[in-house]
Write a protein that binds this DNA or RNA. Structure first.
Lengths: 172, 172
DNA sequence: TTGCAACAGTTTCAGATGAAACTAGCTTCA
DNA sequence: TGAAGCTAGTTTCATCTGAAACTGTTGCAA
């Protein structure tokens, strides 16, 4: 059935001496798999009904309130890098979802606003997005949802830390 | 303080008539951002010290016990698609991390085993991976870790459901 | 048998990606 | 001023990716 060698009273310390690791219990793997499934599902939703990608959706989401932002500000708020934002914007210009005018004070900054067409998509897509989110969390109790919120905040903060400082011991 | 808008009795019904959506509170977005940061950090770790990618690491992880699996089985256990697995395997063949021999009974299935070189990487990498995971969860209490485990299981199950059946109402 | 559908794995193709180089506009300070 | 160095955003390049097409193998059924 399961484990071939029964006696861990090893005489051989090196061959399989290391700790074992089950991928399905490894947090980075689990988060990645969850994210993939969720993103894929959501991407299909957006693409099928509105013909937009997730980067485009994110831009619509942050500009949906009618605000005007620069590409850099969009990058910050959507956690995308500037290249991704630049490309999404150029697609959105083609499909008349966004309006670009260069700023008066600083002509490097482009001021970006959604077109009515994009605002209409926003109005339609938000309920769908929220419905999906609701379905996703429908398996959770109210209390668990609160826990999830707290855990995600903590994990994100810690992950950000570790991304900057890979190994504390190596940086004295 | 949780919910920001208490009174839905808004005075402006059409301009932003749709429900608003804050990206930073939208679960799919949050999971995606977390996954990106974690994956990126982990990928750097694996690449820098061992010159392997995450797909390769996953294959090493599932074969690390010394098992022999087919590519299809690896795909299942690593949640990668067969193309990804195929490509990772061909890279690993080049770098002598994996051994491939065609099966006796079914010559379509290739039997894959790690080489000693890969097992050595496994032995080295597992402690690093577990250390990263431990650092990631070090911000959580013991109880929170248990909660996280339960929440991830529930969310994954639900996400899988929704991936298969996008909208229950449309499938009578 | 042979014909055909199903399966394992690979390759192709077209698009997505990120790092680094690049362009253009702004700021600083000698 | 004006050279040097920022910053915003774009483009290039090399790689990665997933869907679909393809190759070779097996199983089944007429």
């Amino acid at each position: 059935m399961a484990s071939p060698r029964r006696k861990p009273s090893d005489t051989e310390p090196s061959t399989t001496g290391a700790a074992k690791l089950h991928l399905t219990r490894f947090l980075p793997y689990r988060v990645s798999v969850l994210s993939n499934v969720v993103s894929h599902t959501v991407a299909k939703l957006y693409d099928k009904r509105f013909g937009i990608t997730i980067p485009e959706w994110r831009i619509i989401a942050v500009l949906g309130g009618g605000e005007t932002l620069s590409a850099g500000e969009i990058a910050q708020r959507t956690a995308m890098d500037k290249v991704q934002v630049s490309r999404a914007i150029s697609r959105m210009l083609d499909s008349a979802l966004i309006l670009r005018e260069s700023g008066d004070t600083d002509r490097r900054k482009a001021l970006l606003t959604l077109t009515p067409k994009a605002l209409a998509i926003y109005a339609e897509i938000v309920p769908l997005a929220l419905a999906y989110e609701a379905q996703l969390t429908s398996a959770l109790t109210e209390e668990e949802s609160v826990q999830l919120d707290r855990l995600l905040i903590k994990l994100q903060a810690q992950a950000d830390q570790l991304a900057v400082t890979p190994d504390p011991k190596n940086t004295p």
